[in-house]
């Protein structure tokens, strides 16, 4: 999803690289210059100082001030390449691919009485390529293990959102996320596997 931090007037904005094809272990923290400039460093180390005296030290300029020590150079190069790649494809195109897959998958899932969907009640314009679901009587972690055995990777658990799960009255949930490399065949394989889950644990359809 394209985001304009200036338009949002965000003081700070964070995103992780691994959700946009970059290597793991790197992300971006955007901050307004005045705020970053006024902030003290949180980590001491190489390349974040200006002058070091016996009793006092001055700090390097933003952003070096916050980049103490050896940098994750491989990660930074990978993230840059990922951003260039995605911008070449365009966010509009990626959103269209995701929407097409969601529109293809949802009606099929809605036909399965033992599948419970979350946040999928209406075809809202802002629905992203994520489908959160549970399968009746089967814990999300078992669902994930079973789908995995059919070559389908979903995430299971709290998804860093314990308060939301509590609000929804859920212990945990599964989450399938589509991206630009996914196809209708992937959706078919996922839904075929979903249909097998209850049987593995000895429940009837």
């Amino acid at each position: 999803m394209a985001v304009d931090v200036t338009d949002l007037d965000a003081d700070f904005f964070a995103f992780s690289g691994h959700k946009m094809l970059s290597p793991m272990g790197i992300g971006v923290l955007y901050g307004k210059y005045e705020l970053l400039d006024a902030m003290p460093p949180f980590l001491m180390g190489g390349d974040m100082i200006e002058y070091v005296q016996e009793q006092e030290t001055t700090w390097a300029e933003v952003p070096s001030k916050f980049e103490a020590g050896t940098q994750n150079v491989g990660g930074a190069a990978g993230l840059t390449a990922a951003i260039d790649y995605l911008e070449k494809i365009t966010f509009d195109r990626i959103e269209a691919i995701e929407k097409e897959l969601v529109d293809y998958a949802l009606p099929q899932l809605q036909e399965l009485p033992y599948v419970e969907l979350y946040g999928c009640d209406s075809q809202q314009d802002n629905k992203t390529g994520i489908i959160a679901f549970n399968i009746k009587d089967v814990h999300p972690h078992d669902v994930a293990t079973i789908l995995d055995s059919y070559g389908v990777a979903v995430r299971a658990g709290h998804h860093c959102a314990q308060p939301l799960h509590r609000f929804l009255g859920l212990n945990a949930s599964c989450r399938a996320s589509f991206y630009l490399y996914n196809t209708r065949e992937d959706v078919d394989r996922w839904i075929d596997a979903v249909k097998k889950v209850r049987g593995v644990l000895g429940y009837g359809a």
């Binding site: 009587d137 078992d142 293990t145 079973i146 055995s149 593995v200 644990l201 000895g202 429940y203």
Partner: peptide
């Protein structure tokens, strides 16, 4: 294989 883990014994005790 899936049924090496999700054995009948496991299914029975969990259900």
């Amino acid at each position: 294989a899936l049924d090496d883990v999700y054995t009948e014994v496991l299914g029975e005790h969990s259900r």
